[in-house]
Design a protein around this nucleic acid. Structure first.
Lengths: 252, 252
DNA sequence: CAACAGAATAATGTTGACAATCTACAATTT
DNA sequence: AAATTGTAGATTGTCAACATTATTCTGTTG
């Protein structure tokens, strides 16, 4: 499936503008790693690939810029953001704060249906561990935290959490890996759900934040392990394209 | 090489695109209240007013959309966001979290120069209170918190704090008003600086967050006071234009 | 008079062309 | 050979025209 087809096929009666479609597609490509960090987004090439003109591409780029996924330089273009380790650690801190807030808010309005849903995710993640399916764990983990955010009754905190989670993925490191880490992580999920169920906002905040702080620790461990063996760094989920189908780097 | 780099970076920043120019201008107009909440941003009118074409205006709008200052509806236009009370309270919560983080980070790398600067702001605010100049207090207050953010050594938390602070202003309510409130607020500033100076991150976090939580309380008090006397609601700082010089509302 | 249909109007969505700027490479000079 | 300048190509910035969609107006009909 080509990039152009996916967007051009919607060109009939649509209520989502091309700029939005391009934005989503670009975001997907960036988070997938199809466009590596530091790479330039060539407006002409992308417009041609997606079968649209440069206008929507430029609008999409402005949108992504504010979201922190790309950086624009005047008269030079927009580049996929490259996270430094320090920036990534800061993002983990911020996400821990927001996650704590989300859990606390949810604990105030929690009902049994939500708890059941969250427990189902936890069971699914346990199953993924047993099946040694890390990709499935990864996706269910995302769904679990998204569900908490969606049910929290917040508006800005929810979108903020989503934005920070996307930004973190710029690091392109699979932090959650290995059966031991996965089991620990899911045990924390259990603690989070119990804290939310208890209806105690402080306890829910504590557990939600702690889980993400532990994530930061896991990141640090992964990084120090990579220091020792830089050759076999653990990369994130599958990359769609080799990205060299369009040469976007200006200099070598 | 050092000279060359500095020239190149200077050249890059020297030229700001029209889209950026328009973005800043629009943001100013929105935060000033020159374009009221709920109003539509008419691309043609704005482009004509600013002497540019619609392209840069649209790019600026996409930028503001991601910042939360406007909301876009497909085929209908972009509208200045109107904050509900619930959303505003959530923004105060989030800002308290981030502010606490900023203060904690700053406490880790604090030096005497920063402390002197912050104390100077506090003295200036005291002077503003004595002179009954609430506008000056308002501006210095912004500068005080911006200085903490800038000195904190963070990147994302800093921009996040700035974004949330702008978003809060969409409420168009002057919360800090009356000598008593101003004195209390500045006393909290003093506590914040002392906590930062102590080098204790937890204490700094606590004071920074508490100050903004109190801000939320002050907002609630202002709102309940407005409930009683809706006619004399306290509006924010001066509005530049009557905003009816460009009719942007579609229906009457 | 209310309700509805259709045209007129105005706004947004999109495009291709043009201008300004940057990058890369070759020619020239020292 | 190194540095510099000039030129050609590529890329971003901007614009004005066109297409599509939403709104408003108006006349008709029940």
């Amino acid at each position: 499936m080509g990039v152009g087809a996916s967007i051009q096929s919607f060109k009939g009666r649509r209520q989502r503008s091309l700029a939005l479609e391009v934005r989503d597609e670009l975001e997907r490509m960036i988070l997938n790693g199809a466009i590596p960090g530091g790479e330039r987004l060539n407006e002409n090439t992308l417009a041609e690939q997606m079968g649209v003109s440069r206008g929507p591409v430029r609008e999409a780029a402005r949108s992504l810029e504010r979201e922190g996924l790309v950086e624009a330089v005047a008269n030079q273009g927009v580049f996929v953001r490259k996270l430094s380790v320090e920036e990534a650690l800061e993002l983990y801190d911020l996400r821990a704060l927001i996650a704590g807030y989300l859990c606390a808010q949810l604990s105030n309005i929690v009902d049994s249906a939500i708890i059941r849903e969250l427990r189902a995710f936890i069971n699914d993640m346990d199953a993924a561990i047993a099946a040694r399916d890390e990709q499935r764990y990864f996706e269910t983990n995302l769904a679990f935290h998204d569900r908490i955010a969606a049910a929290s009754g917040t508006t800005r905190a929810k979108t903020l959490y989503a934005a920070l989670s996307k930004e973190v993925r710029l690091l392109r490191l699979r932090v959650l890996t290995g059966e031991a880490s996965l089991r620990l992580s899911n045990a924390e999920h259990q603690q989070i759900v119990e804290a939310i169920e208890s209806g105690d906002p402080d306890r829910a905040h504590e557990e939600g934040a702690r889980h993400h702080s532990n994530g930061k620790k896991r990141l640090l461990e992964t990084l120090s392990r990579d220091e020792e063996a830089p050759g076999e760094s653990v990369v994130a989920e599958g990359i769609d394209k080799p990205a060299s189908n369009c040469r976007m780097q200006r200099s070598n």
